[in-house]
Amino acid sequence: MEVSTDTPKSIWSQILAILGKNPRLSVFLILAVISTALSKGIFLSPANLHNMLRQYAGIGIMAVGQTFAILLAGVDLSQGSVVALVSMILAYLNTSGCGIVWPLVVGLCAGAACGLTSGLIVTRGKVPPFIATLAMASIARGIATLITQARPVYGLSKELLVFGRGTVGGIGIQILVWANVALLGVFLLTRTVYGREVYIVGGNERSANLSGINAHRVKLAAYILSGVCAALAGIVITSKLDMGGPYISLTDNVQSVASVVIGGTSFAGGRGSISGTIVGTLIIAMMNNLMNLMLINPYIQQGIIGAIILLTVTMNQRKAGVR
């Protein structure tokens, strides 16, 4: 910025102007200030922030993939179950002496396969995404429980724990995975032909088809991306928990969708961004973190998060001038 800084007033008015244009960023900052104040500074402590980000990296990663599905006027409700499936595959293979590479490869492939299946059902089968992915959720969860007859798997090898517990330069590895996935998502969406096509297909599929865009392929790719993101989330979550669990991530799917929606991506498709989604995840993370610091009953916390989702979406709808 080559803005002159002779009067501090102009800086403030500039900041206010920026905030006025980005209501989500404002919510984020206001929450941060409130959190800091109410927690008497604990919120801002590096340990707390680091902890918070590590805890929400899995959801953050899922939300990046979810953004693609929602931008295309769809939704992926199978992510949470895919996390559990990948978790079980990972733990089962790892503890049966397959080392670490194969479990990771198979886990990622399983995530991609789930996404591919959902995508095919949505595009070829013309099943609404809500139903298709809900069915996929049931199937994936079913397979996850089938592997060990619903018993959790413990005793993962040390190398596998790196993703959830290791650090590089003091930063948790899952945070770095999240950051990279997010950057990749931003790159895909804003810099590539594919990203342009996502917005056009999401905005008006018929028009996109008649403009020579293969809408089915674009959607298929989005569901695969969402599945792979869920698999990556499954890896970091399993590693952090140090176990493979068929019943993990039961509520994570809701949080992934909530991140995207709070992040301003329209459920009607065609509008939204990854950066919004990241802010969305951070808002949810901060809310939870703050309430934990304040020792609020976790059951009440869920309700409050729900209220926040409603509030932001209502605000978005108002702004978009929905009839």
Partner: peptide, 25 residues
Amino acid sequence: VVLCRSIEENISVGVLVRRVFKFIV
């Protein structure tokens, strides 16, 4: 047209479909 997207994006579909850009725009 795609009503919710910009003029720029709507027109650019015509360029993209010619595969002027392989992957990165």
